[in-house]
Amino acid sequence: MQVRVLQLVTVLAALVSWEVVARAGWVDPLFVPAPSAVARALLRIGGTAFAGLGDTLGKTAVAYALSVTLGVSAGVVVGSVRLLRDVMSPYVIALYGIPKILVLPWIVLLLGYGTTPAVVYGALHGLFPIMVLVMGAVRDVDRTLVTVARSFGATTWQLYWKVLLPAIVPSVLAGMRLGIMFCLLGVLVVEMFAGVRGMGYVMGSLANGFQAPELFAATGLVSAASIAIVLALDHLNDKLSHWRG
């Protein structure tokens, strides 16, 4: 409780001192507008910003659905077949590690401007963290549990359905939490690089137009949205993994 109060105090103190500094004219309002100016700007661009945010979140949702589906299924298959895992894992980890931005120009070249490259690039971003986590989780499933299930006569199908999949639920959820951030990041990057709509495009144009208050408002809006999404996933995580304690 005390912690919550202090967190609130921190945020308020930061806002107030920022406002004071801006009003006193210690910083150039062209670059650092006061919070009150940002709030007014939010009202001004509200319609555009929310439309942009909706567009971005829509693309993110599609990209996310793709990367979760592909990441989990590929992770389970590659993780549970020993040979596949040994052969593929260095490649998967390497693909996870390299900056995806390097292929962005090529994706835009191939798919043009618009929704498709954003979805593809967002999905590409989300896919690998999920796949890496799921692969690791499948590899690390307690062997005793598999032996137990076999001794009770489990079929291969039952091994996957009743042992492997429930066992990796926590890792799938951790991957989904990581994945949503990566998907959103990917979509925003495409929108900034070659967008015609969406929040990334809106923010890029505001920056180019030196509209600092509006830009700050838009930035705050996206940040709030992504924090809200992650907190919601955390909540879901707690609910679905209650057995872990």
Binding site: T144, L145, T147, V148, A167, W243, R244
Partner: peptide, 12 residues
């Protein structure tokens, strides 16, 4: 039916 040393209960 087998009982293992490590109980091997499904934690979920």
């Amino acid at each position: 039916a087998t009982v293992f040393q490590d109980a091997g209960l499904f934690p979920w």
